[in-house]
Nucleic acid binder design. Sequence first.
DNA 1: CAGTGTACCGAATGATCATTCAAAGATCGA
DNA 2: TCGATCTTTGAATGATCATTCGGTACACTG
Lengths: 199, 199
Amino acid sequence: MAPRPERAVLRERYDRRRAQVVLGAARVFARSGYDQTSVPELADALGMAAGALYHYFGGKEELLIAICDQLMEPLLVQARALLAAGGPPAERLRALLRVWVAHVIEHRDHMLVFQQERHVIERGEQWAGVRENRKRFERLLDGALREAREARVTRLADDRLLLSALLGMVNHTAQWHRPRGRLSAEEIADGYAELVLKE
Amino acid sequence: MAPRPERAVLRERYDRRRAQVVLGAARVFARSGYDQTSVPELADALGMAAGALYHYFGGKEELLIAICDQLMEPLLVQARALLAAGGPPAERLRALLRVWVAHVIEHRDHMLVFQQERHVIERGEQWAGVRENRKRFERLLDGALREAREARVTRLADDRLLLSALLGMVNHTAQWHRPRGRLSAEEIADGYAELVLKE
DNA sequence: CAGTGTACCGAATGATCATTCAAAGATCGA
DNA sequence: TCGATCTTTGAATGATCATTCGGTACACTG
């Protein structure tokens, strides 16, 4: 009686397509700005009609939230797994930096959008989840930094300042890194580690 | 016959008022976003009518350019004066960091707008001047870093990476610093210097 | 191949926006 | 106070935008 493909199959197909759209939208928004890109323009760039977007998203802002989620969630997963694994503080921090820098480079467009739309993220009701995820990552990083300081391997006594400095330099990587740049993600991460850690 | 105030007086009054408007607009745009703030909203927040803005600016975007100029130009002047003064490379770099961090903190709203509107700055024809000023500052910083490396006082062999790291961490200061925060501008700058310079 | 639900289309809609402009208010020298 | 000029007003204008929705195309099941 119910002549439909398995519900799970449909759901998966829907999710995959949605993720594709989010990915493409990140590229477009990174280049042209979120507000300066009209929905028809965006749809054009994605090779679909404006109306189709509303099949996947309740509205333009929901799409923006999806971009931020697609950025933050896999990073959180990786960071948690890594920090759960144990090891000496300096090595843990170095490893976290590598994962983080690689992620920023891999999701360059997402990062640019994320940074550009800071003022929306800070305020909106619907943005609480994104803010929470950001907070979670900062807490993980903060924990790794405290450990490192207690092991006396950081070069700066002030954890908070070190945290902010790292957030600044690592996230800023999205602004200058180019796909076939001179330095690999790993070299960049190790450079940052060299600034932060004692020899 | 010509019953007018001195031309210079008028010009000065006009310029001062314009600068006030630019300052106020920076605050509003930093909080609510450039695109998300309508001209009537902005005018309201500034206590003036929408039309009056067009007495000082050809359009909304010209106002945005003015915000960036008001940010970059005094910093360039200070940086140039400081670097012209001479002294040992480590001290020059430290001094530059202090001036720079203080400027970022002082112009927090301008910085937030500047960072949020990156995609406009990168592209537009009319933005060439702003891009040029940014380039000039980066060259000054780059020079100071090279000097420091040649004097073997930096902790990272790679000037380019160090430059990017500094741009990231210092500019990011605008995002977390609060007016009556725990650390002074000077303490923050010295913290950054500690990361970058050998003991 | 018939029937059903999903994916997509694109013109229409109502709201919002940047900008203009004619007129009024403010300022100041004479 | 007069009159010239600078400054500000706010309603009108035309353009643009996000979103809606009635409908088509397609994929899959049985």
